[in-house]
Design a protein around this nucleic acid. Sequence first.
DNA 1: TGGCTCATGTAATCTGTTACATGATTCT
DNA 2: AGAATCATGTAACAGATTACATGAGCCA
Lengths: 183, 183
Amino acid sequence: MANEKKTERVILGLLSHESMTGYEIKKRLDTSLSFFWGASFGSIYPALNGLERDKLVTKEETTENGRDKIIYTITDQGRECLAKWLEVPVVKDEVRYETLLKLFFGAGLGPGGARQHIENFEAKIRMGLPLLEGFVQELDGIRELEKDHTYYMITAMFGVKTYQAYLEWCEEAKEILNEMEEK
Amino acid sequence: MANEKKTERVILGLLSHESMTGYEIKKRLDTSLSFFWGASFGSIYPALNGLERDKLVTKEETTENGRDKIIYTITDQGRECLAKWLEVPVVKDEVRYETLLKLFFGAGLGPGGARQHIENFEAKIRMGLPLLEGFVQELDGIRELEKDHTYYMITAMFGVKTYQAYLEWCEEAKEILNEMEEK
DNA sequence: TGGCTCATGTAATCTGTTACATGATTCT
DNA sequence: AGAATCATGTAACAGATTACATGAGCCA
């Protein structure tokens, strides 16, 4: 039951789009997927070994521009395995907003401290939003070409929607804290 | 650096509001905090022991209605420790939306399968939203009485905002999938 | 009587991060 | 020359879940 191996699934999913090295997988996770998933090198490389052991991917060692690379490619068995997993209904999406936690206990901080956490959060979201908006625009333009793009776009849209909601909440929350201080 | 012990912090925070048993802490996490944090019994009870060992909480064994309970109370040292942690800026909020993951690889599912994941997600959100709206209303009514309530309300507002955004996204996403199928 | 909720806890296991180690290439 | 990036990997450790174990009271 505890045999989900989600990192392996994500990697398998990414490799179903195109063959990649572990390093490239990490980059992908840190950019396109960063707003809803993440993984460290310390989990990616062992996961790739596990996938190869189970014959879900194959590895090919090459050298490009004098750099050693290991390019992983999904196998038919890997595609089957991925397809099966994709069909399994999601049990739960996990979120852990430390910011909300600190705000929930905000009485221990006072309005000033609480506002700092909100502004800190807001700054990160403001940074990420243009990127997500860029993805959506870009993908919307090319989605006639490949159906994959439509699915990427839908997820990016999720990011935009939620980030916008976050920002609206930041304004409202700060407003409430201001009113609180004035009294 | 890896010494964050977040579960202990959450518990400490909850106990800063009022003394509780481990079981009650779990219930609190499963209701008021469930949309941004979670923890299992298997992490709560050991965390309580750790907090007691470090003298951040005290335990009191009692019997209520013939039921044995262990009520935990935060100490002054515990409050100090919590206050220090509250001031530390949040590094990152973590999210792991398995739903988005499966949608991202949605080409392997087709529009029908993708729609199922969205509807599954939507159903959960629709269930949770009225609860959150209830919290906000309730807290808004009593927030003059205790300043704590304002902070709870702000977090509940976050839940409402994001859940509403989720639902809007669900509609848009389904619309796009419909268009895709018609072609 | 049987099933649910209350109540606490442990052990096995899994999964992941952090920090370290190594070394080449590319940019400034 | 030095810093940053490309590229792969491991070991120690942290943190958490799941499943199990136990037992009492409450409700139908």
